[in-house]
Write a protein that binds this DNA or RNA. Structure first.
Lengths: 224, 224
DNA sequence: ACCTGAACACCGTTCAAGT
DNA sequence: ACCTGAACACCGTTCAAGT
């Protein structure tokens, strides 16, 4: 006969740990697209208040979730040949990581100081590339802020599009085109013209285009 | 003795109209920084459900509020000499208009088709300047989307900073600098270096810098 | 027919009561 | 000392009941 279960196993569920709570919270956010303390308590099989034993409030938990969400982000090595290509790749990877974890883009955008180790590693790698591009400290930091603000703002905006229960992005594009096609072309000719171009304005393309605008100017300023 | 008050005046408050509701709702959002249907009902001196007689739901009311919020936006004339200066001015004016009406930036970012007259006028004027810059339809539309996404995302992010009940922006800058100063400089040298530059990274400067990056690239693409 | 407000299904967090 | 859950102060919206 096996030994009696340890105290940890005697209870019907394992005891809560901060890391375990964070993991379940990220899973919950990924499943539902949103996240509440009460839903988390239920998924943990515990009282909604049990989490408050490990985190001061929802904000503190979200801070921990953000850093955990960025753990799977792998920055390119600092010595890679082309810093501009590195910045482009990191921008796309950052967007992808935020999209994998709904609600985290809002944390980035809120400009709370985020000093988790994975968050800092991402910032460090991005600043490194900007310096390697040849920018001075002031431009590197302003460029860093511009990229972070754009990426987090973009993901916050696209999250509800992906979460639509009808066709998601394609339904959204169709809706936009229908709306702009109905605009009176004599009063708003440019807007009416925009309607025809709408189907190719996918989120991927919009994101890539804007990132390239930002990076192109940064590269030019570095060259001067 | 004056005539008996009209039916409209006999009641203690004037009857609700869509335009009146929108005005009170914008006032409420400006005062409190946020906005709820229940608080609106109270401010109107009516049942929370009274608004539902004029608007299908909160979304419909917010759509009307956005267009009203953009009514005070004056686009520069289409014939102004320098389209780039026009775009810069419009970007700053758009940000200012959104900041005057908390919560409206979120509506812009959400990419619901916004087809109110003032919203369309803003879009029409912006696209006009981009075409005058020399861009083709595809670039003009992508550039338009990049500007709108950046501006709305930026305002969504800065709103909570301005709404802080301690020093607002200056308290936020101090907090950011303190956090980044505490980072281990051996592991994160670039981030530590960023701390020293933090005080000059005001929201105005961040915004201006990023807008100029976007516009600079757009102007270059137009020239080619 | 029109309007009202009770009720439903939520939310984050406090705090008193229990073990 | 630790944990629980009732309670507080919210939220948007449905729907039955009243005039």
């Amino acid at each position: 006969m096996p030994a009696a279960p340890s105290t940890a196993r005697r209870r019907s569920r394992p005891p809560l740990t901060p890391a375990g709570i964070v993991q379940v919270a990220l899973d919950l956010a990924a499943e539902r697209g949103d996240f509440s303390m009460r839903a988390l308590g239920q998924k943990l099989g515990a009282d909604p208040m049990a989490v408050y034993r490990h985190f001061a409030d929802k904000n503190a938990l979200l801070d921990a979730m953000l850093d955990a969400a960025l753990a799977d982000f792998q920055p390119p090595g600092p010595d890679a040949a082309d810093p501009l290509a590195g910045l482009r790749r990191m921008s796309h990877d950052f967007r992808a990581a935020l999209l994998r974890h709904p609600g985290m883009a809002e944390r980035v955008a809120m400009n709370r100081p985020a000093t988790g180790p994975h968050t800092l590693e991402l910032a460090e790698a991005t600043l490194g590339k900007l310096f390697r591009l040849g920018l001075g400290a002031s431009d590197a930091i302003s460029g860093f802020e511009a990229l972070v603000q754009f990426i987090s703002g973009f993901v916050r905006a696209e999250e509800p599009v992906h979460a639509r229960d009808d066709g998601g992005e394609s339904a959204w594009l169709a809706e936009m085109q229908a709306a702009y096609s109905a605009v009176p072309a004599d009063r708003f000719p440019h807007v009416a013209r925009m309607a025809a171009q709408m189907p190719e304005q996918t989120l991927d393309r919009q994101f890539e285009y804007a990132i390239d605008l930002l990076l192109e100017s940064l590269a030019r300023r570095a060259r001067k």
